[in-house]
C-alpha cells in the first residue's frame, strides 16, 4: 500500500463536492468530471506545495477553480450544457417538482456573473467560510461578502421571489390559483 494512503482518502472524500462545484461552474457533467480528474492529477503532482495542517479541500477547490478559469480564458465560453447532460442526469430525484426546481434554479444561476456564482456556491453550498472562499478565489473577504449578497439579490430578482413561499415551480401553480380565485364571481352564470 502506498505511503500516501491518507492523502488518497482525503482526496476521495472531496470528490463528490468537487464534482458538484465543477458542474455548477461549467454546467456539463462530462466536462466537470474531466476538470475534477485534472485537479486531482495536479494536486497529486504538486503535493509538495501543499502546506500540512491547512485545509486540503480548500486547496483542491483552488486548483479546480484556477483550472476552470484558465480553460475559460482559452475557450471564451463559460456556461454550457449543449447536450442537456446535466438536466438529463437528474434522474435520481423521485419527485418531478424537485427536478424542475433544481433545473430552474440552476438556469437562474447560470445568468449570474461567474464571480458571484462561484462565491455563492462556495459559501452557500460547499460549506466554506467567507475567509476560506476568499482564499480560494484569491480576493478579499469583503469582496466575497459583497458578491454573495449581489448573487442572492439577483437570484431573487430572476426567480421573481417576493416572499419565501413564492419560489420554485409551485409558484406558477400558486399564481394560477390566485388568478382563478380572483376571477369575477358569477362569471359562468
Amino acid at each position: 500500500m502506498g505511503l500516501r494512503k491518507n492523502v488518497r482518502e482525503v482526496m476521495l472524500e472531496a470528490v463528490p463536492s468537487l464534482r458538484a462545484f465543477a458542474i455548477s461552474l461549467c454546467g456539463n457533467v462530462d466536462r466537470a468530471d474531466d476538470l475534477v480528474q485534472e485537479t486531482l492529477l495536479r494536486a497529486w503532482g504538486n503535493m509538495g506545495s501543499f502546506q500540512p495542517g491547512t485545509n486540503m479541500s480548500a486547496w483542491l477547490f483552488t486548483i479546480l477553480r484556477n483550472l476552470f478559469r484558465s480553460e475559460y480564458r482559452k475557450r471564451r465560453r463559460e456556461v454550457e450544457d449543449v447536450d442537456g447532460s446535466y438536466a438529463e442526469s437528474l434522474t435520481s430525484l423521485p419527485e418531478q417538482n424537485s427536478r424542475l426546481e433544481i433545473v430552474e434554479f440552476r438556469d437562474a444561476l447560470t445568468l449570474l456573473p461567474s464571480e458571484q456564482r462561484e462565491s455563492l456556491i462556495l459559501v452557500g453550498a460547499s460549506g466554506f467560510s467567507y475567509e476560506e472562499a476568499a482564499q480560494i478565489c484569491g480576493c478579499a473577504v469583503g469582496t466575497i461578502k459583497s458578491r454573495v449578497n449581489r448573487a442572492r439579490s439577483r437570484l431573487a430578482e430572476i426567480l421573481s421571489i417576493d416572499r419565501a413561499c413564492d419560489f420554485g415551480p409551485n409558484r406558477k401553480l400558486a399564481r394560477s390559483q390566485i388568478r382563478i380565485s380572483s376571477a369575477p364571481i358569477g362569471l359562468d352564470r
Binding site: S17, R19, S24, L90, G124, A156, R163, A164
Partner: peptide
C-alpha cells in the same frame, strides 16, 4: 428569502454530492 435560496442551492449541490 435568504434561507430559501440557501435551501435551493443545497438541494442542487446535494443532488450531485
Amino acid at each position: 428569502i435568504k434561507a430559501k435560496i440557501g435551501m435551493q442551492l443545497r438541494l442542487m449541490y446535494g443532488e450531485v454530492v
